[in-house]
Amino acid sequence: MNIYDIVFYLFAAITLASAFVVVTARNIIYSAFSLLFTFFGIAGLYVLLGADFIAVVQLMVYVGGILVLILFGVMLTNKITSVQIKTGTLQVIPAILGTALMAGVLIKIFTGTNWHSQMAQYPTKTTAYALGHILLTDYVLIFELLGILLLIALIGAATIARKEEKAS
């Protein structure tokens, strides 16, 4: 067994276990913090897949940005001390239907894909250059459109936040 295999199984275990906690934990804070480990594990898996740039972006965007945003959302919610921040089980039947559908699709993909198995390995060459090249040549339109979309979202968020301030 290669050391990279061990690292792979470690990261896979972290990802799966924490993802399980994210779904099952009744305390939102626990869910949020296990999400941290899920993201972290996924970043590790990306590294082992040779996608180092994606891995670091994963850490930066998801852990540094989105997760902290979620945590802020939970922690800054008003009257957090008086309300039990726990999730319950509701909408059982639609949930079962949705899960079944999702499971079906996933099973189809699992069985239908021709899995390309490769040794987990340490990335020797950075993907940053290639990624940048592709983004600014082949996919430049999509890249720009995404940028505009994000800008719109940003302006929209700012507008909403401002309106509220004026009303109060």
Binding site: F53, V57, L59
Partner: peptide, 18 residues
Amino acid sequence: DIDLGMFFIVAISSLVVA
């Protein structure tokens, strides 16, 4: 000696925030 060293340092500090 990773090629994304600087980027990695910036990103990993988000663990500290969490």
